[in-house]
Design a protein around this nucleic acid. Structure first.
Lengths: 239, 239
DNA sequence: TTCCTTCCCTACTCTCAGTAGGCTACCGGC
DNA sequence: GCCGGTAGCCTACTGAGAGTAGGGAAGGAA
C-alpha cells in the first residue's frame, strides 16, 4: 500500500561510515534508556540497518557499549589535555583547576550520555568490566605521571591513592552536579573541588608545611554522631 | 542412599526467614556474576526454592538487587557510624581517618559483593537508579552533617562538594585496592587518603592558613603534561 | 561479461524475566 | 479427631530480546 516497490534495500555505505552512524545512534539510545533497557533492535532500527550488522561490526551488545565508551573517553581526553596544557605555565594549582573545569564542562555538554557511558550503566563482571576499567586505568596512569612530576619523592602508593581519589571525586561531584547542583557552573565547581585537593597536594609536594592533626573536639563535638563507642584511639599515621 | 523418598518437596518456612535466605543467595550470585549475568533461575536454585517465590517476595530482579544493596548499605552505615563516633574525641582528622578505615575494612570483608552491589552493577535508568542513588544519599548526608560541624561558615556548595568528593574518592580508592592494591592495609590506605583531604579540610575550617597557588612550573615542566607519553588513548588529569 | 569482495538482509534459535493458576503443609477452631 | 482457611510453595507456560545461519546483491576489477 505504501510501498509498491519490492525491496526497501538500504543504500550501501563504506564500513567506517556505517560504524560511526551506529555509534551515534547507540550513544543516543544508551543515554535515553540505559544499557540494560536498550535493545539491539531499537538501535538497528534507528540507524536504518538490520541487527546482524551491529553484530558484524561490534560483536555483542557489550561490544557496542564499549565502543561508545572508548569514543567518548577519547573526546574527554582531548578536551582535558588541551585545557591543562593551556594552564601549564600557571603552575600546578592552575593545572588542577583547569583540568577539573574541562571535565565538568564536558559532562555538562554531554549530559546523560556522559553519566551512562562513563559511570553508571557499567555492565559489570565479564570482559566488559575489565575493558572499561582499562580505559579508566589509562587516565589514572596519566594523572599519576603528571603527579609524580611534582611529587618525585612520594611513594607510589601515595601517588596512586591521590590519582584515584581525584578521579573518584571528579566523577561523583560531576554526577551530583548533573542531578542537583545544576546551578553551579563548571568553573565554580572546579574551584571548590580544587580547594579541597590543592592543600593536600601542596603539602605532599613540600610546597607547604605539614598540617598537624588539629585540635581535639572542634567547634562542636561530633556528638550528633553518637559518641558512645569505645574510642578507637589513634588513627593518624603515615605511610 | 541419597533420596529414596518420592517428593522433593521443600520444607516450609516463615516468610522473613526465607527472605533472608534469598537475600544471602542473591548477594552471592550477584557478586559472582554481576547483575546482568545473574539469572533468577540460578538464585532460586541456590536457595532451593522456585522462581515465583523470588517474585512474590521481591517483585523483580531489580527489586532483588535493591534489597541486597539496601541491606549491605545499612551494614556499612552502621560500621562507619560506630567508627567515627569512637574517634570523635580525637578531633576531626582522627574522625576522617577512622571513617575511611572503617570503609576500606568493610570493603575488604565483603570483597566482590561490595564492588558489585555498591558501585558497579548499577542498572541505571528507571526507578532502580533513583533508589540506589537515594541509598547513597544517606551516606552523603552523614558526611555532610559531620563536616558542617567543623565548617559552620562554609557555603552549602562547599560542604556538598567536599562530601561528594570524599565519597567518590573512597569508592575509587577502595576499588583500586580490591583490584591491585591488595597489599595495602585498610589503615594505611585510610592514612594516605586522609593525607590528601585533611589539609584542604583544615584550611576550609580555618585551622590552617590558606595555601597560595604555588609557584609556576614546578620540578618538571607541566607543559603538555606528558612530553614523553604518546598519549595514545588515555586521558589526562581530568579528575 | 564474469568474478569476487564487501555490505547487507530475512528468518530463525535459545535463554531468561516474568506470570497464571493450582496444590499442600500447617494452624487454628470445632 | 476433623475441617476450613490461609500462607507458603510449585509446575508449566508466555514474550522479549540477544545472538546466529545462511544467503543475496551492489559495485569494482579483469
Amino acid at each position: 500500500m505504501t510501498e509498491p516497490g519490492p525491496a526497501p534495500r538500504r543504500k550501501r555505505m563504506p564500513r567506517a561510515e556505517r560504524e560511526q552512524q551506529i555509534l551515534a545512534a547507540a550513544e543516543e539510545v544508551f543515554a535515553e534508556r540505559g544499557f540494560q533497557a536498550t535493545s539491539m533492535d531499537e538501535v538497528s532500527a534507528r540507524v536504518g540497518v538490520s541487527k546482524p550488522m551491529l553484530y558484524e561490526y561490534f560483536v555483542s551488545k557489550e561490544g557496542l557499549l564499549l565502543a561508545c565508551v572508548a569514543r567518548i573517553r577519547a573526546d574527554l581526553h582531548t578536551a582535558t589535555l588541551e585545557a591543562i596544557a593551556g594552564a601549564g605555565p600557571d603552575g600546578p594549582r592552575a593545572v588542577l583547576e583547569a583540568g577539573l573545569e574541562a571535565y565538568f564542562d564536558f559532562a555538562d555538554r554531554h549530559g546523560r550520555a556522559w553519566a551512562v557511558l562513563l559511570n553508571e550503566s557499567v555492565i559489570v563482571a565479564g570482559p566488559a568490566e575489565e575493558a572499561i576499567e582499562a580505559i579508566r586505568g589509562q587516565q589514572t596512569l596519566l594523572i599519576q605521571s603528571a603527579l609524580s612530576r611534582w611529587l618525585p619523592s612520594a611513594s607510589p602508593e601515595r601517588v596512586a591513592v591521590f590519582a584515584h581519589a581525584l578521579i573518584g571525586a571528579g566523577e561523583r561531584v560531576a554526577r551530583w552536579r548533573l542531578r542537583e547542583g545544576a546551578g553551579i557552573k563548571p568553573r565554580e565547581s572546579a574551584a571548590l573541588l580544587a580547594d579541597a585537593f590543592w592543600p593536600g597536594f601542596a603539602v605532599a609536594a613540600g610546597l607547604a608545611p605539614d598540617i598537624p592533626a588539629g585540635p581535639g573536639p572542634g567547634p562542636g563535638v561530633p556528638a550528633g554522631l553518637a559518641p558512645d563507642a569505645p574510642a578507637g584511639q589513634d588513627s593518624a599515621k603515615r605511610a
